[in-house]
């Protein structure tokens, strides 16, 4: 089964996104910030990462740059999932190695569509 790491400091968002991703056939792992996510990735790289931007300890952007520099860090497909909507932020995320970008609020149709576009479904 494919795995998806859901990284968000909101437990509610992790729960809602987790339910949608599970319904698409993924096993989910949760992390509340970038550092927890990095620790999880160093144990085992997931297939997909749904990544918030603004979080305490380590934000999503710093996590992504660190991840991509790690061995096998290029393997997970990373989808930012954030309230940031400025074009400049989106370009910054893509430059750091994000594969897709989801703007909150989201629904299951958006998550499914973005997973398809990223080649995960």
């Amino acid at each position: 089964m494919k795995t998806c790491l859901i990284v968000d400091d909101s437990r509610m968002i992790r729960r809602v996104a987790g339910r949608i991703v599970k319904d698409m056939g993924f096993e989910t792992i949760e992390a509340a910030n970038g550092q927890e996510a990095l620790d999880a990735c160093l144990v085992e790289m997931p297939h997909a990462i749904l990544l918030d931007w603004n979080m305490p300890v380590m934000d999503g952007f710093s996590f992504l740059k660190t991840l991509r520099a790690e061995k096998d860090g290029d393997k997970p497909i990373v989808l930012f999932c954030t309230s940031e909507r400025d074009i400049d932020k989106i370009i910054e995320a893509l430059s750091a190695g994000a594969n897709e970008y989801i703007m909150k609020p989201f629904d299951s149709a958006i998550i499914e569509s973005k997973f398809q576009l990223a080649g995960l479904l």
Binding site: L94, F106, L117
Partner: peptide, 20 residues
């Protein structure tokens, strides 16, 4: 809408062809 541009549209196309 926010929802319409996130259904089927790759983010690269959003950046290239749309303004907010």
């Amino acid at each position: 809408t926010h929802f319409e541009v996130q259904r089927g549209l790759p983010v690269q196309d959003l950046v290239q062809h749309f303004t907010r």
